[in-house]
Design a protein around this nucleic acid. Structure first.
Length: 407
DNA sequence: CGTCCACGTCTAC
DNA sequence: TAGACCTGGACGG
């Protein structure tokens, strides 16, 4: 569940499910978790949640006991405790009965009911974490969704920061300035404005105002209409506002979808899939950024692009002979993908893997010489050699993502 | 069976 | 700025 919208939806979920529920006893941690114990135990307490960017804070609030304070049992909390969560790649909250505990429920809060219910922090991959008596992480900036004005100001007043020397798509993942933006949001946001992902961040941000002058003109609207490309640019300017505004409104659209956001396991994932216009969408291009993350986009990648493995899309598909309007679209597309994949694997993955440094180098040099980027490019590639690979083609994942372009 | 990929940080060279 | 940290689904052989 992990970008800003999912974290916020998680907090809404906790508040909704736990409204009126009384919890009791200690907070329990799974054996395998490396996050800290939560030293809180209480005969009767409540749980509420609030989110900020990519964090959620749970507040455990002891209920007033009838006993006089002196007589309350030792070790029982009488003070509220905050626990701040980060979700990593797979964290989420779930509220279930005790015997339906999800797999990977690494932190658990038990209700006082019978049968007992449990609020669990579930995290398959365990990249998430929590901090008892925690506070918002100090290096993270204001929330893109719920601290919009200070978020804008924080960016606009720090444009000299080296962060903004980076391509815009990479700057957008810096949580010091864009707390809540993640990989699918950066793609969706840049796509809406037709901004090439690999242009210098500063160049697209300078000139923007601290105040959102656009703010009063139009309400935040989660309107996603089919528009022709030619119209899109105009529409963008007229109805959407600037990049910083979209860092605010686009995540809110996901919140307003009312589902779970990005969560392929869930039934209501289809609404989210349908909402995506670029990320993992068939026909879009993708490229690794300098940190090895897949950037989805359309059109011009921009001057700072890695000369890295690229997505297939139209051009490469055209190379596929059996490509033209097969009915079994998936199958055909996948075949194309696999083909592409093998090519690159042979060229890079294999050679790189076998300590063939020289041949790897050759491959790189042979591409083209771009002096300033050479180094980064090499680095980016090198990093990926162990799983050297073109960015996954859209076709390959078409099952996971709405195919807007089909038909 | 094996390889690659995934919504994100962290921290050691 | 490479890995490290993890599990599991999709796909290929």
């Amino acid at each position: 569940m992990p970008e800003g919208p999912e974290l916020h939806l998680g907090s809404l979920y906790v508040n909704k499910m736990c409204a009126g529920v009384v919890f009791t006893g200690p907070v329990r941690k799974s054996e395998v978790s490396k996050s800290p114990d939560v030293p809180f135990t209480c005969e009767a307490y409540r749980i509420t949640a609030i989110s900020r960017g990519k964090e959620v804070k749970l507040t455990l609030t002891p209920m007033k006991s009838d006993e006089p304070k002196q007589r309350s049992k030792a070790g029982q909390a009488d003070q509220a405790m905050d626990v701040v969560f980060r979700f990593g790649m797979s964290g989420c909250f779930r509220f279930t009965t005790e015997d339906e505990l999800p797999k990977h429920a690494h932190l658990r809060f038990y209700s006082k009911e019978t049968p007992c219910r449990v609020l669990s922090f579930v995290d398959t991959r365990r990249f998430g974490s929590w901090q008892p008596n925690g506070t918002w992480q100090p290096d993270r900036g204001p929330c893109i969704m719920f601290e919009y004005e200070s978020f804008r100001k924080n960016v606009v007043t720090h444009l000299s920061d080296r962060t903004f020397d980076r391509p815009i798509c990479e700057a957008l993942l810096n949580q010091k300035y864009f707390n809540g933006i993640g990989n699918y949001l950066r793609a969706e946001i840049l796509y809406r404005l037709n901004i090439p992902p690999f242009v210098v961040a500063r160049s697209v941000l300078e000139g923007l105002e601290s105040e959102d002058l656009f703010d009063n003109e139009k309400p935040v609207k989660a309107e996603v209409r089919d528009t022709k490309d030619s119209d899109r640019v105009k529409k963008v300017k007229k109805e959407m506002g600037d990049l910083l505004r979209l860092c605010h409104t686009v995540p809110l659209e996901v919140v307003n979808l009312g589902g779970k956001g990005y969560d392929p396991q869930k039934n209501d994932y289809s609404a989210f899939k349908a909402w995506l216009q670029c990320y993992y969408v068939d026909g879009m291009k993708s490229l690794r950024d300098h940190n090895g993350r897949t950037m989805w986009f359309k059109g011009d990648p921009g001057p700072m692009a890695t000369k890295d493995l690229k997505s297939p899309k139209v051009k490469k598909r055209a190379m596929k002979t059996e490509d033209h309007d097969y009915t079994d679209k998936k199958k055909g597309a996948r075949g194309g993908r696999a083909h592409e994949r093998r090519r690159w694997s042979n060229r890079e993955s294999k050679t790189a893997k076998k300590e063939e440094v020289s041949s790897l180098k050759e491959t790189e040099e042979s591409e083209k010489v771009k002096t300033p980027q050479q180094k980064k490019r090499t680095a980016a590639r090198g990093r990926k050699t162990s799983c050297a690979e073109p960015a996954a083609g859209p076709e390959k994942r078409s099952g996971r993502v709405t195919r807007q372009s089909s038909k």
